[in-house]
């Protein structure tokens, strides 16, 4: 059985890895590889956000009664990251290397700050308050 912090943190690392591969491919102007890796990253990110917004956040809010606290900030940051992903999509389509690398650095910094808040505070808090955390993760794995 895997805990919420363990599983969700591992997913962050997987996203970072494929994100870096896409970025390295852009730096080398290998556009087909870049597109491949980037799409893979975007899919993983979307799935991760859906798991949090669709399941983990509502469960946490219900268990703690904190509806306008950390989860609300996380949701708003997700929305901002989606906007950056859209900008990166456009930069990639236009094969604009400098624009892509500037935006990817930005998304990287934003993701890392966001991840740190989740990994160091929110996930451990979820682990404490959600008694069925491991079952939820099993469900995520099966999806």
């Amino acid at each position: 059985m895997t805990s919420i912090p363990e599983y969700m943190t591992a997913k962050h690392r997987e996203c970072d890895d494929v994100f870096s591969e896409a970025e390295a491919a852009v730096a080398q102007e290998n556009w087909s590889l870049a597109l491949d890796k980037w799409q893979c990253f975007a899919q993983e990110l979307t799935k991760h956000f859906e798991q949090e917004e669709g399941k983990l956040f509502p469960e946490f809010e219900q268990a703690t009664g904190m509806t306008s606290g950390p989860t609300q900030v996380m949701r708003m940051e997700h929305q901002q990251m989606r906007a950056l992903v859209q900008d990166l999509d456009n930069a990639l389509a236009a094969k604009n290397k400098d624009e892509y690398l500037g935006l990817s650095e930005t998304l990287m910094v934003m993701m890392q700050q966001h991840n740190m808040k989740e990994e160091m505070m929110l996930y451990p808090m979820m682990d404490q308050h959600l008694s069925d955390g491991e079952q939820i993760i099993e469900q995520f794995k099966a999806d």
Binding site: Q80, D98, E99, L101, E105, Q113
Partner: peptide
Amino acid sequence: PFLSYTHLQQRCLSHFSAMQFIPHMHE
């Protein structure tokens, strides 16, 4: 660049449409 970006980004949390004005890190 991180500080400059993060502060503007936090300000846009509740004004999502204003995100378009924020330059990226390399700018």
